[in-house]
Amino acid sequence: MPRALRNGFLWAVDAVTGRRRWKQRLRPRRPRSYGQFTSPTVADSRVYVRSPDDSLWAVDAAGGGRRWQRSYGRDTWSTPAVGDGTVYLGSNGWNLWAVDAATGKERWKQETGAAHQSSPTVAEGTVYIGSEDMSLRAVNAATGEERWRLHTRGKVNSPPVVADGSVYVSSQDNFLYAVHT
């Protein structure tokens, strides 16, 4: 069941027939002048998505009902990542957030000093995220404490990929970095 955000609504579409299964209104009554720039994330029978008014929503994947919504003001973020019952997201407001996936309550917030256009990746208790300050960060998923940081020569806006004990990320310096975790 692919999902897409269109006209301020989150839609669930049957993959075989193409018919709409449900839709959930995510936009405010007075939408801002720009649309959606992130993708939804599906985990544990929920869809997590940023709405055009910079709220994070948890929506029931089967029926489209809202489970919870949390507003972050005007702090546009990356596509959320989900791991071990926590939703992680980066922001232009120089923060990395961890939110309880079931309730929407903040678990921790790390002020990184850099904007995050990169979407986070979660693997084996670590959150990896690139940033505008030309670095890749590895953060403890439970506490938000930074474990290490790799400096590059360009902004890191691509989402990191973790495979076979390494994290891979590209940078605007035209290099692909591989770091053994």
Rank of each mutant, 00 (worst) to 15 (best):
P31W: 08
R32E: 10
S33D: 14
Y34L: 12
T38M: 07
V42T: 11
D44T: 10
S45T: 09
Y48F: 15
V49F: 07
V49K: 01
R50E: 00
S51V: 01
S51P: 01
D54K: 01
S55C: 13
S55Q: 14
V59H: 09
A61K: 05
G65K: 10
R70E: 11
Y72T: 12
Y72L: 15
G73Y: 11
D75L: 08
T76P: 02
W77C: 04
T79D: 11
A81K: 07
D84K: 06
T86D: 00
L89F: 14
S91G: 12
G93A: 04
W97D: 05
A98C: 04
G104T: 12
W108H: 02
K109G: 00
Q110K: 15
E111W: 15
T112K: 10
A114P: 01
A114R: 11
A115L: 08
H116N: 07
Q117F: 15
S118I: 06
P120R: 12
T121H: 11
A123F: 05
V127A: 05
Y128D: 14
S131A: 15
M134S: 12
M134R: 15
S135V: 09
S135L: 09
R137L: 15
N140R: 02
A142F: 00
R147F: 05
R149C: 11
V156M: 13
V156H: 10
S158H: 05
S158W: 06
D164M: 03
G165M: 04
